[in-house]
Design a protein around this nucleic acid. Structure first.
Lengths: 156, 156
DNA sequence: ATGCGACCTCAAGTAGGCTTGAGATCAAGC
DNA sequence: GCTTGATCTCAAGCCTACTTGAGGTCGCAT
């Protein structure tokens, strides 16, 4: 192993694009467990870089940190994840994405079925009722990946 | 108009399924502007119920309150939204959903392309890089509609 | 020896979307 | 007259994923 296998928090921040503060937070949260130098400074290994890459990808897929922590607990710590490990994870990701896509498509279809009715009836409207199944799972956080709520789509 | 056209906050809460506190918050936020009884209590009209139904649907579609407020500003207050109003809104919703679905599908395809490689390379991995475009649009809030991050999908 | 940058800890702040609590008022029922 | 329940206002708290700030240490270069 080369000396570059042991990295300071600043070096890791630069490599991963994560903020130093985020790295410290991740440690506190239990996503990574860097070693410590005698002076108390954090020392990161390759395995930590892999874990962090995983965290970033999983976040991009929309997973929350608690869920990511769970999944990380299953990933090998000392060796790179092998095809088997990765297949397991990716199958889960895929199921997750398929689920989400399906939900959105249902919503879109309901929307199409509703165009022009303008009812939004609490008793009858498919869209109104879709909300119960689709939304309000988490207590906060309803913004979506790729959310463009502050932009104004130019539509008719 | 019948007497039931004027509702107390409690009655509205019951009808819409929203908490009383949420209704007050919505007023403060500017989503609704209920009238006031001489004693200071809020009095809601049918129009308010429609607006609230709209808020719930829009939230289900993943819009944030600021965006919903914008859209509501365009909706008629005194009369039910007509086909024209509704078509405008629904076109926007649809664009929004199509966008989100496309993003997820891209992500899923990248994922499929990556299965078995296990690299998560910061330089080369499509998934890792997808994160830059797909995620981190908002500052917080990465949870998704239909998020199941606290459940564990039974996979392989 | 002094200044600089990188690091440390711990506490508090941010945004979004609410909820909860304290303290007050009001209408109705007994 | 008094309690009960619904309402009111205003302030503070909660959750996620962090950032920011205060105050201190470490090691190196000048």
């Amino acid at each position: 192993m080369k000396a570059t296998d042991i990295l300071s928090i600043g070096a890791v921040a630069e490599r991963t694009g994560l903020a130093v503060s985020a790295l410290r937070y991740y440690e506190e949260f239990g996503l990574i467990t860097p070693m410590r130098a005698p002076n108390g400074q954090r020392r990161f290994r390759r395995a930590d870089l892999r874990r962090l890459a995983f965290v970033q990808v999983a976040q991009g897929l929309g997973f929350g940190l608690p869920r990511i922590r769970e999944v990380l607990a299953d990933l090998p710590d000392g060796r790179p994840p092998n095809a088997r490990d990765w297949k397991k994870i990716s199958a889960m990701f895929r199921a997750e994405l398929d689920q989400r896509i399906a939900t959105l498509e249902t919503l879109r279809d309901d929307l199409d079925g509703c165009i022009g009715c303008g009812c939004l009836s609490m008793e009858r409207c498919a869209l109104y009722n879709a909300r119960d199944k689709a939304a309000k799972k988490g207590s906060g956080a309803r913004y979506l990946m790729g959310d463009r709520s502050s932009e104004v789509p130019e539509v008719g």
